[in-house]
Simulated assay, not measured.
Amino acid sequence: MTDVLLCVGNSMMGDDGAGPLLAQMCQAQPRGEWVVIDGASAPENDIVAIRALRPDRLLIVDAADMGLSPGEMRVIDPKDIAELFLMTTHNMPLNYLVEQLQDDVAQVIFVGIQPDIVGFYYPMTEPVRLAVTDLHQRLDNWQGLGGVAQL
């Protein structure tokens, strides 16, 4: 069984750096058997690499404006990504990525972390940093939706 963790975001944009921070944490202290890919702000560039791995499970983590308190996490149905996110800091909307991979990946789980501040050269806020740390710890024994509530 192959599991891929795709971390998405821009570390120069405050809380949008949640995904890249998770990738850094996994590099420094691996959790579970995840193959970690730092998709940064252009995760569509990793479609070929993900297809080649033929994962059973793809966990995508990104900052996502869901109208929640900063740092709150939710699992978002990949079919709802296009409807929920009218703006993105990435080159292409994540629903494009999911559509491209749906025939090659058995299960896609999208975890959004509610940002507080997304702006160039802002530091990451403490609630988002704590959420990333929590998510990093959950990777060891990830079952189902990892204990993250659905939106």
Rank of each mutant, 00 (worst) to 15 (best):
E44Q: 08
G32A: 14
G119H: 11
E44C: 01
G146D: 05
Q27A: 14
G32N: 15
G112M: 02
L130F: 02
F120D: 10
N95H: 15
A49F: 00
I109D: 10
E83G: 08
P55K: 09
S41D: 13
E44S: 03
A18Q: 04
V111S: 03
S41P: 00
P78N: 11
D140G: 11
V61I: 12
P127N: 08
S11Q: 10
E99L: 07
T89M: 13
D3T: 07
N45A: 12
D65L: 11
L6A: 13
G17F: 04
A49S: 12
L139E: 10
L135I: 05
A64T: 05
Y122R: 14
T89F: 06
P20I: 07
L22Y: 11
Q137H: 07
L53Q: 15
V48R: 14
M87G: 01
V118F: 07
D140V: 01
A40K: 10
C7W: 03
P20L: 08
T133P: 00
M66L: 15
L22A: 12
G71F: 05
L101D: 02
M13N: 09
L86M: 14
W142L: 12
E99C: 06
L101V: 00
L21C: 01
V75T: 14
T89N: 14
G112D: 01
E99P: 00
R57F: 11
D46R: 09
L6G: 07
G147Q: 09
G39Y: 09
A23G: 03
L130A: 13
V8Q: 05
M73K: 11
L6E: 08
P115V: 01
P70S: 12
A149P: 04
D38Y: 02
L22D: 11
G144M: 03
I50Y: 03
Q29W: 13
H136L: 05
Q137S: 11
I113D: 02
M1T: 10
I117A: 09
A131P: 02
V105E: 03
G112Q: 01
E126W: 04
V98I: 13
E83H: 07
M1K: 05
E126R: 09
G146M: 00
D140H: 10
R31E: 12
T88S: 14
W142R: 12
G119T: 06
G19Y: 08
T133C: 02
I81Q: 10
V61Y: 04
E33P: 03
A106H: 07
Q29A: 15
F120S: 12
G67L: 08
A28P: 02
R54V: 02
A42P: 00
V108R: 00
L145Y: 15
T125N: 12
G144L: 02
T89Q: 11
G146V: 03
V8K: 12
L58P: 08
